[in-house]
């Protein structure tokens, strides 16, 4: 394993090893909701990455100013501010993506990944590692969203990023772009990751690095691992 505290490690850990969606199982709502198309997955992923990097930066700068007792409301305000910013940017420059993401763009505010990283990482680390951590986690999130979106788009509509797939497009399996297909594909992807990693599958939705971890004391199994 690479040096635990090197900047490179902070960046790469979010991509595969601690991939927020497929390994630590955070941020399930947007993962399921917006991945009917690969393009939407990328859009959502990049929007989340932007918010994650900016909020990690600001929270890491303010970590000595924010009193411990009211830290969660402070984090939420910072995050909600950046979400508002990205809403404006997307509405102005990519209106079609803005329409297809809909309410889930505002709901980035309560995405467990962002609050979780703020709580578990940015509020305890220096600026550069925090930015890299946010970037890595965000790109890992984007990657898994893109994979999910690709599977669902190819099987469900028979096209991918505007390319028509010959055989499937004649008889697309519409169920894959419906809600039921979302659950199914995510279940299969997590099982696949387990198989490749040859590790015991997670038995629970972990509340490690979850913003609520402070309140549900003792129920989180591997909170330590995320912080250190």
């Amino acid at each position: 394993m690479a040096d635990k505290h090197s900047n490179w490690y902070e960046f790469t850990k979010g991509l595969i090893k601690q991939n927020p969606t497929l390994v630590t199982l955070l941020g399930m709502c947007p993962t399921l909701a917006v991945t009917t198309m690969a393009k939407n997955g990328i859009g959502m992923g990049l929007a989340t990455t932007f918010v994650l990097v900016c909020s990690n930066l600001v929270i890491s700068l303010l970590k000595n100013v924010i009193p411990k007792a009211v830290r969660l409301p402070c984090f939420i305000v910072v995050i909600a501010g950046f979400v508002t910013l990205i809403e404006f940017l997307m509405k102005g420059y990519i209106p079609e993506l803005y329409d297809s993401l809909g309410v889930f763009l505002s709901l980035i505010t309560v995405n467990c990944i962002i609050l979780g990283r703020a709580e578990a990482f940015a509020s305890k680390n220096k600026i550069l590692p925090s930015i890299l951590d946010g970037l890595g986690m965000g790109l890992g999130f984007t990657l898994s969203l893109f994979c999910m979106g690709s599977v669902r788009e190819i099987l469900g509509t028979g096209s991918w990023m505007g390319i028509t797939i010959p055989v499937i497009s004649e008889n697309p399996m519409t169920v894959f772009i419906m809600p039921a297909g979302g659950f199914f594909v995510l279940g299969c992807l997590i099982a696949l990751v387990n198989k490749i990693a040859k590790k015991k599958p997670p038995q629970e939705i972990s509340c490690s690095s979850c913003p609520n971890a402070a309140m549900c004391k003792g129920q989180c199994r591997d909170e330590k691992e995320a912080c250190e």
């Binding site: 659950f183 279940g187 299969c188 997590i190 099982a191 599958p201 038995q203 629970e204």
Partner: peptide, 14 residues
């Protein structure tokens, strides 16, 4: 073995 836990739950939810 690979489907035990969360994947099975998700497929049931589906």
């Amino acid at each position: 073995e690979t489907f035990k836990g969360v994947p099975a739950t998700l497929i049931a939810a589906s």
